[in-house]
Design a protein around this nucleic acid. Structure first.
Lengths: 347, 347
DNA sequence: CTGAAAGCGCTTACAG
DNA sequence: CTGAAAGCGCTTACAG
């Protein structure tokens, strides 16, 4: 209705102020405005002050599309989740990681683009999108062996940092992971310290680093304690609660005399706990139970689960740090972070 | 090392093909190439065919920055999570919603930018980012009353679709939600049908629609059954498992004769189950328990939880559909989706 | 139906 | 230290 409302204010909203407006306001050229925007090098103190005032006054915010067009950088990164990770998505771990990466990126004012490569078709589309330069790098969440996306990204020379060491790749990308082997050793050491000797394990999928490395830790520590490896004490799970239940059932049948279990994830451990309860075995009295992750499930389990903590916050922080350094041209690196035993009531 | 490697192929990777390359390949002007890219109107069949062939041959992918610069659209949307939703982030519901929105958007080739407005400072930064036109619209996840972000977005005339009806706003944005009231009624009807008469409830936070509306449904259904409202039978929770445990403890003290509880979320219901077990009350024998959400927790609960299903897939699908139509200039609309009672073993 | 041309908002050598 | 100018890759009236 009001003319006033439909002039100045409203049209200013349609077209945000540009570098041109700032330049005019500051009584200076656009090139100089751009220079202060990009670090303020080669700019006199007075010019800098005038530009900053003008920016504040006009409410100027850089147009990233214009900037990206000339710099050939997008100033954004992808968080890519590949199909097989379906289960991880239901896992609280995923939330921690995603939230951690978002926060770490936000500090650099870099938006995170979430991408899920479910179907083969999606993988193709996302592959094209990414390699077309719409993101500067990718945070990759994919732990199963032989993920085709890894090679595609590598061929496109796209900076990549994976969460967990990607297995079965010609060229392993940079990654950050918790020390799975040492984490398993911590748990085994604890169980052994409790006097347990018939210690079973439900492993993770053996085509994932968590599956393989936690099993190695288990075997190593047992060997160091002078206990022979007994195949009847190990079954493979797939990280789902159901597989924890089923695995525990199998273990009880194969080795009724077991007095402890190391379960390679909290979710599976929660399933194992249910099986144990149903079988009438007390925890930790008859059977001590140890998990892995220290996700929300651990504290909520009945009884509360003794587990191995993965430092998700640090993991996401390091992923972002590594990716940013890769993007700025530094050579790749991977980092392994220590885990920590969290004692609660199951062991 | 090799000259061959450092020429053609490598440099082609640095600078992806542009519309210019496609035009030359097709023997046609750039304007025409652009036209086929944008719907193919006013283009002869031959030209269209030539351009499509050239696109395929060159591996051309549009540069979105260049496009956005002229169209003043970003072709991307934000998924914005505001601070108070901390708990929701740990909830499996969040995953369903996020994944659903990502998938729905992917079908339109629109990337989802994840943003978390935790601190006040972040909220300011994100507000600026969004209102500066870096996204075309926002999917807002925020259920607590009086979220300042809602008003900010409204003033900036940014298209917004919320998940759940935002309470305490001057101007309610478009939203999509499950029918909370009706869902509660379904559960109450079921409990009543089981012959229960002393039905308690642990509500959600009363500054959220889920808290308020599910409580209304509870009260309504009871009234319709001719049962007087008893304040001793209702306690307020905050959607956390701990509040479910505590709420149940309180209810047991205030109304020892209760024979059923309607708990306004699965996570709280899981906590209530623990309290009940500790108190020696059998479920559903002594006390029937009903939850809300049908999240992963429900099926995993002991005993498996009877609950009310929220159609997350449809919710996310509708959110995206509404947002896209808002962006294309259509008037706002909100949608309420029906819930469904899922019978398991607790009631 | 199609081409030539202007312009979106920025950055970056290049002179000075 | 600073300005003028070219150019990033597209879209879109405007003529024809």
């Amino acid at each position: 209705m009001s003319d006033a409302a439909s002039s100045g204010g409203a049209s200013a909203r349609r077209r945000p102020p540009t570098i041109h407006d700032v330049a005019r306001e500051a009584g200076i050229s656009r090139g100089t405005v751009s220079r202060v925007l990009n670090g303020g090098h080669n700019v006199s103190p007075e010019a800098l002050k005038a530009v900053n005032a003008a920016i504040k006054k006009t409410g100027y915010v850089v147009n990233r599309h214009a900037r990206s067009l000339v710099t050939q950088r997008s100033d954004s990164v992808a968080f890519l989740l590949t199909e097989e990770q379906d289960r991880f998505f239901e896992d609280p771990n995923f939330n921690h990681l995603l939230r951690g990466c978002t926060a770490a990126l936000a500090k650099h004012d870099i938006p995170l683009l979430l991408m899920i490569a479910g179907t083969e078709e999606e993988r193709r589309r996302i592959g094209r999108y990414i390699t077309a330069g719409h993101v500067d790098g990718v945070l990759l969440v994919s732990s199963h062996s032989g993920n085709p996306m890894v090679e595609l990204l590598h061929e496109a020379k796209m900076p990549v940092v994976a969460c967990g060491k990607p297995l079965g790749q010609v060229a392993t990308p940079a990654y950050v992971a918790a020390d799975d082997r040492e984490g398993a050793r911590q748990m085994l050491r604890h169980l052994l310290g409790l006097g347990r000797r018939r210690i079973a394990t439900v492993t993770g999928p053996l085509d994932t680093p968590g599956g393989v490395d936690r099993l190695s830790g288990y075997r190593e520590m047992l060997a160091e304690a002078g206990i022979d490896y007994d195949p009847a004490l190990v079954v493979e799970g797939d990280y789902s609660r159901a597989s924890g239940e089923a695995g525990m059932t199998r273990l009880l049948a194969q080795a009724p005399d077991l007095d402890a279990v190391f379960v390679a994830s909290d979710l599976m451990a929660d399933g194992a706990l249910a099986t144990l309860a149903k079988a009438g075995r007390s925890v930790p009295g008859d059977v001590a139970v140890g998990g892995f992750d220290d996700s929300a499930i651990a504290a909520a389990a009945r009884p509360p689960l003794t587990t191995v903590r993965q430092p998700w916050e640090r993991i996401s922080g390091e992923m972002v740090r590594l990716l940013l350094s890769l993007i700025s041209g530094e050579p790749p690196a991977s980092v392994i972070l220590p885990t920590e035993l969290v004692r609660r009531e199951t062991a």
